[in-house]
């Protein structure tokens, strides 16, 4: 097990190198340059400014040289400075947006799991019942509704017409004058709509996986054996079937680790939440190379760790794979 772990960890080094090199080349080859974005179509700018900026950003050097110096800094955990007009360190820009993004994502994953695991189990054990059908249609409606559309409808109804929930942002005006508990409640109130909308869309996937895994598991031989032993239905379902049915869910959870920091630009745009998705999107649109690279590296690292965790979890839960 330890060898497996060490081997996988060592594998991550060439992987990271490959990923960063590919990303670096791809984003630099994509049309458009950060300097264009800052100088273009501004009647007051001369062409020489662009050359000046290009030199400041090292964009006039060969691509591999740029990559080398970028990598050199990265090894010292320096992500460089943003090419946008604020010239701030990339690490700082990312760090200030991480908490809210991770917070919202954890909340919605928790909500999704809380809702979809019971739905999945119940609709599997009562296959083709009214409950099964109703939840099927319900979770699919959640999945099938374009999220920004749903978000705006809810904002209009709950925020404007009924006035019961805040519409956007994560804090009210005057948040800083509230007591600590009230501050928490205030933020929580702001998070209800975003978390609900993102969870509503995600329940379908999870609960369906849960249901189909459960359906498969309850028909396995060992479940039949357990039943034959005379175990109660509850014990069969919850002690034996559930554990195995949760297996693929581990894979899915592992896959969502990078999503934790990824954020969704659409959500963050609609709800005016300053998160990672918007930061990355704006970075790509502005061709802010250091920022894009920084986020891709962090994302890639977390993805690899997430995959590793998923595999580990799998191995722990299913002894057959451990030796593979």
């Amino acid at each position: 097990m330890l060898r497996f772990l060490i081997r996988r960890l060592l594998m991550m080094i060439p992987l990271m190198l490959g990923i960063t090199l590919i990303s670096f080349v791809v984003i630099h080859l994509a049309p458009g340059e950060p300097t264009d974005m800052q100088t273009q179509l501004n009647p007051e700018t001369g062409v020489e400014l662009r050359e000046r900026l290009r030199a400041q950003y090292d964009l006039d050097k060969p691509l591999l040289v740029q990559y080398g110096s970028w990598l050199g800094r990265l090894v010292q955990l320096d992500f460089g400075k943003s090419f946008s007009q604020d010239h701030r360190p990339v690490g700082e820009k990312v760090l200030e947006r991480l908490p809210i993004t991770i917070g919202i994502n954890l909340l919605s994953i928790a909500v999704i799991l809380l809702v979809s695991v019971p739905i999945g189990i119940l609709s599997a054990t009562k296959q083709n019942s009214g409950f099964d059908r109703l939840t099927t249609v319900f979770v699919f409606i959640g999945f099938a509704t374009p999220s920004f559309w749903l978000a705006l409808l809810l904002m209009d109804v709950l925020g404007v017409r009924l006035g019961v929930l805040p519409i956007s942002g994560i804090k009210s005006m005057g948040h800083e004058y509230l007591g600590p508990l009230e501050q928490w409640l205030d933020t929580l109130r702001h998070l209800i709509l975003p978390v609900f909308v993102s969870a509503f869309g995600g329940v379908a996937g999870f609960s369906r996986y849960m249901r189909s895994n459960m359906l498969e598991v309850v028909r396995q031989d060992y479940i039949l054996t357990a039943r034959a032993k005379g175990l109660g239905e509850r014990a069969v379902i919850y002690r034996h079937a559930l554990r195995n049915a949760l297996l693929p869910v581990i894979t899915i959870l592992g896959l969502s680790v990078p999503g934790l920091i990824g954020g969704s630009v659409i959500f963050e745009t609609i709800f005016a939440i300053p998160g990672m998705g918007k930061l990355f999107y704006d970075g790509v649109m502005m061709r802010d190379y250091p920022l894009i690279m920084g986020i891709l590296v962090i994302g890639a690292f977390l993805t690899l760790v997430g995959n590793l965790l998923a595999d580990l979890g799998y191995a722990l839960a299913d002894p057959r794979i451990r030796n593979a």
């Binding site: 990923i19 984003i27 896959l255 990078p258 990824g262 891709l296 890639a300 993805t303 690899l304």
Partner: peptide, 22 residues
């Protein structure tokens, strides 16, 4: 699987954008 890992490391939105730009 390493290839899958690499692909998963790119946000699909980034790839989409890169392609649309190209």
């Amino acid at each position: 699987m390493r290839f899958v890992d690499i692909m998963l490391c790119f946000p699909s939105f980034f790839l989409i954008l890169a392609v649309i730009a190209f």
